[in-house]
């Protein structure tokens, strides 16, 4: 996948995904590998995201490359009215790789078409965030030993949550069984249901947090008040999607609880000391996964 942009998780095949995860594991075993010390990577954050930016820039630095760029658009030429196209044209003359986060949807695909060098999408509005998906996959593989034949329960905002949609599509390569737990208003959209049906993947939809004992992975997401057209409905359901430690009592020993972070209150802090809580390590895995992605795109094996 040398020189291939990563805009959407669907851009990469199953084999390419597995290759990145293997590289990530090697970087976790030995994080300081200055394999890219003659390279320059541009980190263009048109909207601030400290968490994602620090993860990327740590990955770039551990690979020995140098970083140029900006951390929000007020310090970039965009604030002077420069188009995205012109910014990308300019930067792709300077850098060997572009990492970009932008508030508009589709901006990363457009940038990848305008750029002379590969573009990694670090989030384009509510559209795609493929490096989050790859770090989720890495976390699942690392904790379960495999990605194949797992049972995954997804909880919370399944309608607007882009991380669950991308994870669903990526996991579809590996014969999963899904349980979708969401209030009526935030159910998994029809297009993803059809996607799974076409692939012959087993899934169940439910509105309460049952069947936890069947899960290998419990993937929690935020249920945000502003997503509800009716605030009464929000008040009615908000406590139904909060994970408490006692609920993990009869779950499988290999179960891990994942969350894309930051959380609000959907995982009670009484879960944090439980060894099944994995969301903080999951975030740490982001650096190794991003090293694997960058290395793969720069043509390292």
């Amino acid at each position: 996948m040398k020189n291939k942009s990563l805009v959407s998780i669907n851009d990469y095949s199953k084999e390419e995904i597995l290759q990145i995860l293997e590289l990530a594991a090697e970087f976790e075993a030995n994080p300081n590998q200055p394999l890219l010390k003659d390279k320059v990577v541009a980190s263009l954050f048109f909207e601030p995201s400290t968490r994602t930016r620090l993860s990327f820039e740590t990955a770039i630095n551990r690979l020995g490359a140098r970083v140029i760029g900006f951390s929000d658009s007020s310090s970039s030429s965009t604030s002077k009215g420069e188009t995205l196209k012109d910014t990308i044209k300019m930067v792709s003359n300077y850098a060997d790789l572009i990492v970009m986060r932008h508030p508009l949807e589709g901006s990363a695909r457009y940038a990848s078409e305008q750029s002379r060098v590969p573009v990694i999408n670090a989030g384009d509005g509510a559209n795609q965030h493929p490096t989050q998906t790859l770090l989720d996959l890495y976390s699942i593989k690392k904790t379960q030993g495999t990605l194949d034949n797992l049972t995954i329960i997804m909880v919370g905002d399944l309608k607007y949550g882009r991380t669950v949609h991308s994870l669903l599509m990526a996991m579809a390569h590996f014969n999963p069984t899904f349980y979708f737990v969401a209030p009526q208003e935030l159910k998994m959209p029809r297009e993803y249901i059809i996607y799974l049906q076409n692939k012959g993947i087993t899934f169940y939809e439910q509105s309460d947090m049952t069947n936890l004992e069947k899960a290998d992975i419990l993937y929690m997401t935020r249920v945000q008040k502003e997503r509800f057209s009716d605030s009464m409905e929000y008040e009615r359901v908000k406590n139904a999607y909060i994970l408490r430690n006692y609920m993990l009592e009869n779950t499988k020993p290999n179960l891990k609880v994942l969350h894309p972070l930051p959380r609000v209150n959907e995982i009670h802090t009484d879960v944090d000391p439980n060894p099944k809580a994995y969301y903080f390590q999951q975030a740490e895995n982001g650096v190794y996964t991003r090293m694997g992605i960058i290395a793969a795109i720069m043509g390292l094996h």
């Binding site: 188009t83 995205l84 196209k85 932008h102 508030p103 508009l104 949807e105 589709g106 901006s107 695909r109 457009y110 384009d124 509005g125 509510a126």
Partner: peptide, 13 residues
């Protein structure tokens, strides 16, 4: 594109 947050509605594309 119907999506007001789409890049195509914000730049000449």
């Amino acid at each position: 594109c119907f999506n007001p947050k789409c890049i195509t509605n914000n730049e000449h594309i």
